[in-house]
C-alpha cells in the first residue's frame, strides 16, 4: 500500500511551550488510524499542522503520489488538495439547511465566479440526498442544521467531509457527547469511509477505538510514544505509565 501522507520530524513551539516535538507519522491511501493520548498531548495541534492552520517550525509534510509539500500552503489550498477536517466541536452552518450545507461541501469548483453562476445539477442533488441517507439525515434535508441534535450535527459534519471527496480525512473526537447508539452509527460511517480513503480519528474513548479495529498511534507530549494494534499499545509499559495507568 502506498503512503498518502508522510509527516517527518515536525516540531512546533508556542511561545516556549513545545507542543509538537520531532513528530513523525505516516498513513497509507486506504487506511484507518486512531490517535490516542492524554489531554494536551498535541493531537489537535497535529491536525492544525497538517491542515495548514499552524505552521511547523521545522520538519516536512509530504502528501499524495506527486509528493507535494504542504508546508506553506494555506488552509483552503490544502483542503482542495484533498484533505478534509472535522473539528472537535461540531461546526456546521447553523443558519443553513442540511441540503445547503452539503451542496456547499460537494466537490466542485471553489472560485467565486464558478460559484456565483453555479446551479445544482440533478447529479449533484442525487449525490447530496444519497449522502444524507448515509449519515441518517435523509429526512432532514430541508431543515436548518441549527435545529439538529448534537449527534446529528456531528454526522452532518462528517457528511460534509465525505461530500468533499477528500483522500485524507482528519476527524477530531467524533464521538464526544454522543449516545451509545449514535457512537455505533458513527463507527459504521467511518469504517465505511476508510475503505476508499485514509481516515485519521482522534478519540479518547477506548471502546470506540476498539470498534474501529485499526492501527493505533499513541501521542504524548508532542511525539509518538507507541504505535501498533490496540492490544499491543495498551500492553506497552510506557503507555500504561503515562496514559492508561493514571
Amino acid at each position: 500500500m502506498s503512503t498518502l501522507l508522510e509527516v517527518s520530524g515536525v516540531s512546533v513551539n508556542f511561545d516556549g511551550f513545545q507542543a509538537i516535538n520531532n513528530l513523525s507519522f505516516q498513513i497509507g491511501s486506504a487506511e484507518m488510524r486512531a490517535i490516542i493520548g492524554p489531554n494536551g498531548a498535541g493531537k489537535t495541534t497535529f491536525m492544525d499542522i497538517v491542515t495548514g492552520k499552524t505552521r511547523p517550525d521545522e520538519g516536512r509534510i509530504i502528501f499524495g503520489e506527486k509528493s507535494k509539500s504542504l508546508i506553506g500552503m494555506n488552509e483552503a489550498r490544502i483542503a482542495r488538495e484533498g484533505i478534509g477536517r472535522k473539528f472537535q466541536k461540531p461546526t456546521v452552518f447553523e443558519d443553513q439547511t442540511v441540503q445547503e450545507n452539503l451542496l456547499l461541501s460537494l466537490k466542485n469548483q471553489r472560485g467565486p465566479l464558478a460559484v456565483l453562476f453555479y446551479k445544482p445539477t440533478e447529479a449533484d442533488l442525487a449525490k447530496v440526498s444519497s449522502l444524507a441517507d448515509d449519515i441518517g439525515l435523509g429526512k432532514e434535508l430541508l431543515r436548518k442544521s441549527g435545529e439538529l441534535s448534537h449527534g446529528q450535527k456531528q454526522w452532518l459534519e462528517i457528511g460534509m467531509l465525505l461530500a468533499q471527496e477528500p483522500r485524507l480525512l482528519l476527524v477530531d473526537e467524533p464521538a464526544a457527547g454522543m449516545t451509545p447508539e449514535e457512537r455505533e452509527h458513527t463507527t459504521d460511517i467511518l469504517v465505511e469511509a476508510a475503505k476508499t480513503r485514509a481516515v485519521v480519528v482522534v478519540e479518547h474513548d477506548m471502546e470506540f477505538v476498539r470498534r474501529l479495529n485499526c492501527r493505533v498511534t499513541v501521542l504524548h507530549e508532542g511525539s509518538v510514544l507507541a504505535e501498533g494494534s490496540l492490544d499491543h499499545v495498551t500492553a506497552d509499559q510506557n503507555v500504561i505509565d503515562v496514559y492508561l495507568g493514571r
Partner: peptide
C-alpha cells in the same frame, strides 16, 4: 451558492476555509 458561501463566512469563517 455564492450567498451560501458568504453567509458561511459570516457565521464560521474557519469552516469555509477548510472546505477549500
Amino acid at each position: 451558492k455564492f450567498g451560501s458561501v458568504v453567509r458561511g463566512i459570516r457565521d464560521n469563517e474557519a469552516r469555509v476555509r477548510f472546505l477549500g
